[in-house]
Each structure stands twice: as C-alpha cells, then as structure tokens.
Simulated scan of single mutants.
Amino acid sequence: MKIRVLGSGAGGGFPQWNCNCHNCHRLRHNQMKGQTRTQSSIAVSSDDKNWVLFNTSPDIRAQLESFPAIQPKEGVRDTGIKAIILIDSQIDHTTGMLMLREGEPLDVYCTEMVKQDLSTGFPVFKMLEDYCTVKHHPIPCDGSSFTIPGIEDLRFYSHALKSKAPPYSPHRHDPHEGDNVGVIIEQISSGKKVYYSPGLGEIEPHVMDAMQAVDCLMVDGTFWTDDEMCAQNISPKRAREIGHLPQSGPGGMIEVLNGVKQTRKILIHINNTNPILDEDSPQRKTLDDAGIEVAYDGMEINL
C-alpha cells in the first residue's frame, strides 16, 4: 500500500495568502528552515495505478500536477482517481471537487451527514449536477468496513468522531454522528493498516483502539498549544473549541502518541501558526525526540 501526501497544511495552507504571522513572514523572507504546504489531502493505492483521494482541497489541481502516478495515461481524457472519500464537509476538504468538474461522474464516499451538508449549506453536489455529477456512496459511522469497486486489495473502516459540522451546516449547533470520521485503511493481502484522522478533537475509547491497531498513524497536527491563535492575536477561538487536540500540554497529542507503541506516527493538517513548521525550532526537536514525524507535501509512505 502506498500513501501519497498531496497536501499537509490546514485551511489556508502555508504560508497563508493574507497572513503575516511569525511563521508566514519568516518563510516568505527566507528567515526560517521550512517548507510551503498546500491544504490537507492524501491519495492511497495498492497498485500505483488506481487511487482513492481522501478529501479534495482547493489546491487539488496543483497537487495532481505534482504527482505523475495519478495523471492521465490513456486516451484523450483519463485519471488515476477512482473514488473520493470525504471525512467531513469542511470547505478545505471539499471545494476541490469543483476543480474536477470536467471529468466523469465522481464516486464520492461519505456519511449521510456530510452528504446533507454538501447538498444544502454548501451545495457542491447540486452545483456539479450540470457538470460531471456526483454518485454518492454512504459509509458507516460505527467502525464497520466497506470496499470500493475497482480498488483492489484495500478495505476501509470508518467511525464517527466528536466534532462540529461546518458553520454553514444546517445543524452546526446540533452535532450528529458522521459530521466527521476517522478511517482505517487496510491492505487485505498484507494486513497492514494506516489510520487517517486530520481533524481529531478528543481521544475516545474507539479512537485509541484504532490507533493501537495500526502500523501507521496520520493524525491531527493542527496546533501546538490550545491558545495558539489567541496568543498571536489571530482568533479568539482555542484549538479544542474548533475540534483540534493540541500537541503540547497534559492530554495533548504528544502524550497520546507516547502511549501508542510500535507504530509510525505522523502529524498532518498543520496550521500556519504552528511552531513545528520551523524545522529548527525546539518544538520540532520535541517531536523528533518523541519519534513523531511531520507530514510534508509529496511525502510517500509505503506499508
């Protein structure tokens, strides 16, 4: 199984177009050791030919152009994308579908709650009815499995996470199971598994069970501290308030990952304010010492 990180940043990418925070300013002026990042998405395949996209960020066109394995190989119009799995209905995870409108119908796998949001509050599915159209395939919220026709040797398990729906969702203040999911991807022939959850606000028992049962973790690395955006006068909202478990502090992601043994650990969905983007920072050294990696655009994981 091969996992390609198409985008490793949080919403807005890095540097963010209108941001002059400590990180964005220094990266633009070559004053820090770091890498630009597009918005979060991965692609997964077991044969290097047929790929499943996890989320479609607004940066999808540039991401696909930088990844030859998924580009057209046969005929006038072609793509290696066979299906899309959406973990939620957030703008930075779904807008990219509009950039794929010139192709064949999109086979989209997501929960019923995500489908509702993308048919009402942010009606991407309806917008595409006059273009490629969308074929919706529901996925479970209870951890049970599903497969995708044409994607050989891969099985997927999805479970609900505690989260808020996006601000435009009709049930923004009435959370439902399926607003956000974590997914285990299993290669059937080898038994190798990866757990993907770029938006993780709470480590529920079933989440920890999933984390302990896989060979590789790709989990929420959005913020270093709970008050990160408050401290930088960017937003009054705290990390946990918007559904992201910070890395540092009691009960933070580092502490959680230290309790997971014999597993490769990778943080993804990194916000532009996070000090771990500076590869020479003490925060990055803390992760290095803990054996925790930071995803970057173009990163490939082979299991």
Rank of each mutant, 00 (worst) to 15 (best):
E74P: 00
P205E: 01
D288W: 02
L303H: 10
D209H: 13
C110M: 15
D48R: 12
D220Q: 09
R155D: 02
S248E: 14
S189K: 09
Q247A: 11
T133V: 04
V114K: 08
E104M: 11
L200Q: 12
L287I: 04
V219E: 11
P166V: 01
F223C: 06
F156R: 10
I151Q: 04
E279L: 15
Q232A: 02
G9C: 02
P72N: 05
H206T: 12
G12E: 02
E177W: 11
I151C: 07
I276T: 04
G259D: 08
H173K: 15
F223Q: 06
L277W: 00
I70L: 05
E129R: 10
V108C: 11
P15F: 09
V214D: 02
M99R: 06
D92N: 13
I84H: 14
N233E: 12
M208D: 04
D153K: 07
L27A: 04
L64E: 00
H206F: 02
L27M: 09
E228I: 00
D48W: 06
G298W: 03
M99I: 01
Y131W: 12
K192N: 11
M253Q: 11
P140D: 09
T111D: 05
A69S: 06
S89H: 00
I85S: 03
M99H: 10
V219H: 12
S119H: 00
P123C: 10
E129H: 03
D88R: 03
V114L: 06
G75H: 02
D226P: 05
C19K: 07
I91V: 10
L303E: 09
D48V: 01
V194P: 01
F125G: 00
I188G: 09
R101G: 00
K237V: 10
N258L: 13
H176Q: 15
P138L: 14
P68N: 03
G251Q: 11
